[in-house]
């Protein structure tokens, strides 16, 4: 295994985050904090509690998931798309690194960034709302699994995209609506029965539900189903990665 190669990619990507700290770290933290203020304090004061949890605290897991997913997607997709766009991908293709090592480097860096961001947002949330974490190990498991899976998904989007519009279309037009409709701001019990059934077809619901369970012990669906859903999505992403690297899709001529 080319450990030096993996480390080179990882460090290069982490250095990029350092260079763009305002955009990569400060901006998502500020925008998520705004959610805490607006939804937690302003609207939360009228909604009171959901399943015994103050509304401000109830939305924290959903908002954390929202940031984690979006940042993982954008970090990883941009990381692999940019070398394709400016032409520096030639160096990676001509280097003695396997495709799996490339994935480990890029996805590892993107997931690390998202986890750092998640930790900062969690600490920030503590400043605004009363938080408790009942199952910290499960919470960490969800955080890591989600960061890795969505970074891998982002990597695939970056490989697939051949222009900047395509790079944005899935995160903005598919993932964002799924996160907002996946119970980030509400429990699906609050929806009419028909929409409850529709919500069950949204895979993001399972992630948010499981993640929220690790905080407060309340969930829309069983936590094992949530873990199974994220594991299934991870498996699908790995399968797609394997296929892309086997065929050289959009990488090699």
């Amino acid at each position: 295994m080319n450990l030096q190669g993996i480390l080179a990619i990882y460090r290069y990507e982490m250095a990029r985050t350092k260079r763009t700290v305002l955009q990569s770290v400060v901006s998502p933290v500020v925008s998520t904090s705004l959610y805490f203020v607006v939804f937690g304090s302003a609207i939360g004061s009228r909604i009171q509690e959901i399943d015994g949890v103050p509304y401000g605290a109830f939305i924290v897991p959903g908002l954390l998931m929202l940031t984690l997913m979006m940042q993982s997607l954008s970090n990883a997709s941009f990381a692999i798309y940019f070398p394709k766009f400016i032409g520096t991908i030639f160096e990676m293709l001509s280097a003695p690194v396997s495709f799996y090592e490339i994935v480990i480097g890029y996805v590892g860096a993107a997931a690390t960034k998202s986890l750092i961001l998640g930790a900062i947002i969690l600490l920030t949330a503590w400043c605004f709302v009363p938080l408790r974490i009942e199952y910290p190990v499960v919470m960490l498991l969800f955080l890591v699994l989600t960061a890795v899976t969505f970074s891998l998904f982002g990597f695939l989007i970056g490989i697939w995209a051949d222009n900047f519009e395509k790079l944005q279309v899935i995160p903005l037009l598919v993932v964002t609506p799924m996160v907002f409709l996946g119970g980030s701001f509400y429990s699906i019990d609050m929806l009419p029965e028909f929409w409850q059934t529709v919500s069950l077809f949204n895979p993001v619901l399972y992630l948010i539900s499981g993640f929220r369970w690790s905080f407060y012990g309340i969930a829309d669906v069983n936590v094992w189903i949530s873990l199974g859903a994220i594991a299934l999505f991870l498996g699908l992403c790995l399968l797609a990665t394997w296929w892309i690297f086997k065929t050289g899709y959009r990488i090699k001529k």
């Binding site: 080319n2 190669g5 080179a8 290069y12 260079r19 940019f82 070398p83 032409g87 160096e91 280097a95």
Partner: peptide, 29 residues
């Protein structure tokens, strides 16, 4: 093998030192 391609493909926001270190690491050194 070392390759110098036709196009000037470089990461404009990097420094020459960092990009050379990166290249060396990428090639397993």
């Amino acid at each position: 093998i070392g390759l110098v391609p036709q196009e000037l493909a470089t990461d404009s926001f990097e420094t020459p030192l960092a990009t050379c270190r990166y290249s060396r690491g990428l090639f397993g050194r």
